[in-house]
Simulated scan of single mutants.
Amino acid sequence: MSDILLAPPCAPDAHRRQLTFATVGVGGAGIVAAAVPFVSSFSPSERAKALGAAVTVSIEGLPEERLMTVEWRGKPVWILRRSAAQQQRLQSPDLLNVLADPASLRREQQPDYAENPQRSIRPEIGVFVALCTHLGCIPAYRPDAGATDLRAGWPGGFFCPCHGSAFDLAGRVFRNVPAPSNLEVPPHRYVSDLAIEVGTDKNAN
């Protein structure tokens, strides 16, 4: 009969050390496994990265006096195609007299290339963050000049139903309303005659 080789029995101290090492090893693996999701939470998700990315939008089919809404950084952004009549009203003395900041003197409200009466790169196209600067409600687009349910001499613009703030078609705020400043003009540029990239500065290389 062949001999069967058996490992010699562990001494009590040696056995205790083996159990200790095994326990520590399993515990360490558990700590590493638990730490992986915790550490990975510091890395931005793909959605979080996408929220900061620029958005390219075609304006080819956008008619005059109509706007479209896109999302950028989790915010709604309006792109408005103004008619010649709407552009002309933006420089009316009657309108300028009732605006709080007709010259857009607060630099943080728009990029430097939008510091003009239209607050835009091209006079017929306005680009605005569609959030009232009072408490962040989304104003209604009211292009109907002379609307009787709004203020006297309404020139067309944006009216916030939450607390009554009003803005003209360049996003400039009226006087004596809760909103403290004009609508924000986000950084943007034209990548072609018919496409706008929202979120990239016009002067970026």
Score class of each variant (00 low, 15 high):
His15Tyr: 15
Arg16Ile: 10
Arg16Trp: 13
Arg17Ser: 09
Arg17Cys: 07
Arg17Gly: 00
Gln18Cys: 10
Thr20Asn: 10
Phe21Lys: 15
Ala22Glu: 09
Thr23Tyr: 07
Val24Trp: 06
Val24Glu: 04
Gly27Asp: 05
Gly27Gln: 01
Ala29Ile: 10
Ala29Val: 09
Gly30Arg: 02
Ile31His: 07
Ala33Cys: 11
Ala33Lys: 03
Ala34Trp: 11
Ala34Val: 08
Ala35Thr: 05
Pro37Cys: 08
Phe38Gln: 12
Phe38Val: 14
Val39Phe: 11
Ser40Phe: 14
Phe42Met: 04
Ser43Lys: 13
Glu46Asp: 13
Glu46Val: 14
Arg47Lys: 15
Ala48Met: 10
Leu51Trp: 04
Leu51His: 12
Leu51Tyr: 08
Thr56Met: 07
Glu60Met: 13
Glu60Phe: 11
Glu60Val: 14
Leu62Gly: 03
Leu62Asp: 01
Glu65Gln: 12
Glu65His: 05
Glu65Asp: 15
Leu67Tyr: 03
Leu67Cys: 06
Leu67Pro: 02
Met68Leu: 12
Thr69Lys: 15
Val70Met: 07
Val70Glu: 05
Glu71Tyr: 13
Glu71Phe: 14
Gly74Ser: 05
Lys75Val: 08
Lys75Ala: 03
Val77Pro: 01
Ile79Tyr: 05
Leu80Gly: 01
Arg81Ala: 01
Arg82Gly: 00
Ser83Asn: 02
Ala84Val: 04
Ala84Asn: 04
Ala85Phe: 00
Gln86Glu: 14
Gln87Glu: 06
Arg89Pro: 00
Ser92His: 13
Asp94Ala: 14
Asp94Tyr: 07
Leu95Tyr: 05
Leu96Asn: 01
